[in-house]
């Protein structure tokens, strides 16, 4: 069957960040972390070498979900929680496109949780950017599925009784092939993670810690403040031992006989050695153990690429089925349709 008629690309690929800015006025609150992420994405997009018309941003509902309006690409601002489902239909029927999903902690993990996990399990070729500010911003300050237990908000004056999700643990449990975390304020790191996500074939899940300066200001201050940052932020580098601290005084180790990973003082390691980071380990237990190092308190928070493994993507598998099915067929679609209608037990009335 013919695919949609798309005129040959005309956009020259010498693009700059400016080419990715739409003519719409950006309307996030002054000081919102979303501005930094938007600038980082617009600044990084030209590197992809993909024409603007072949890029689509799909979002749900929430502050972050206004994102597509500000990108001079194709874009759809859809409905609450459903962006991964809509993007799945687009990506699997148009594998030629680079499809990005922009979502938030409420959008992706609360109302849209089902679609997120199923997109990840199918390994749909989507780049999913989850802006996690641990609060509902657009509805003015209720707790979210990533808010810490006991969070006091308008809807929980006595503190929330809900334990939060760890988004990366959730994504890994959903069989995600690419899982990473980064921070809105660290543009260089953010762009390096986006680059890795863009290069990944299949679903790439990126959690971006994002500050909501109106309803949850300073949520990530511990890992942003230069005074405290280095003692709490664990930068994962492929092939490098996992150590951190202002003096390199902490190491991540796999204790003999234990199940997960632990943070130890480097000085007291004895025979133990810091774990050497390898995001390509097939066994998801390693990345899962890494994801468990971080909790609501952010005390030991890894950022970087946790997991990047190869698995056939959903669109590839669907395309193969179509190719296999088409392989034996001859004749025009009209002839094939005539044959199909006349299949089975037929009889003629003269």
């Amino acid at each position: 069957m013919a695919s949609p008629t798309i005129p040959a690309g005309r956009t020259p690929l010498q693009l700059t960040a400016k080419d990715f800015k739409s003519d719409q006025e950006v309307r996030w609150c002054p000081g919102c972390g979303d501005y930094a992420i938007l600038a980082a994405v617009q600044g990084f997009m030209p590197e992809l070498g993909i024409a603007r018309e072949n890029i689509v941003f799909v979002s749900g509902i929430g502050c972050s979900s206004r994102f597509p309006y500000y990108m001079n690409t194709y874009g759809m601002h859809s409905i609450h929680g459903r962006a991964p489902a809509i993007a799945t239909g687009l990506s699997s029927s148009r594998p030629d496109l680079s499809v990005w999903v922009v979502t938030g902690d409420g959008d992706a993990l609360s109302i849209g949780g089902n679609h997120l996990i199923h997109a990840l399990r199918r390994n749909v070729n989507l780049k999913i950017l989850l802006f996690n500010n641990r609060i509902y911003g657009l509805t003015k300050g209720q707790y979210s599925p990533t808010s810490e237990l006991g969070k006091i908000t308008k809807s929980t004056p006595a503190g929330s009784a809900d334990s939060p999700f760890n988004p990366l643990s959730l994504a890994l449990g959903a069989e995600a092939t690419f899982v990473a975390r980064t921070i809105d304020s660290d543009r260089k790191h953010l762009q390096s993670v986006l680059r890795a996500a863009a290069e990944h074939k299949g679903s790439a899940f990126v959690e971006i810690y994002q500050n909501c300066n109106i309803f949850n200001d300073g949520a990530f201050e511990l890992i942003k403040d230069p005074e405290t940052r280095d003692d709490h932020l664990i930068r994962l580098e492929q092939g490098q031992p996992i150590t951190f601290g202002s003096q390199g005084q902490f190491s991540v180790v796999h204790p003999a006989g234990g199940f997960g990973l632990q943070v130890r003082e480097t000085a007291g390691l004895g025979d133990e050695r810091p774990v050497v980071h390898d995001a390509t380990v097939a066994e998801p237990a390693y990345a899962f153990a890494l994801s468990r190092l971080s909790g609501s308190d952010l005390n030991t928070t890894p950022i970087g690429v946790f997991r990047a493994v190869e698995r056939p993507s959903y669109d590839e598998l669907l395309a193969k089925q179509l190719t296999d099915a088409t392989a034996g067929s001859t004749g025009t679609p009209e002839q094939m349709l005539t044959d199909l209608l006349h299949s089975g037990d037929t009889w003629a009335i003269l």
């Binding site: 859809s78 459903r82 489902a85 809509i86 799945t88 089902n114 199923h118």
Partner: peptide, 17 residues
Amino acid sequence: EDEIAAVGAALGASYGG
């Protein structure tokens, strides 16, 4: 995965032509 995703994916495909 559910009825909502079914129509969402169909709409996404329509958007793509």
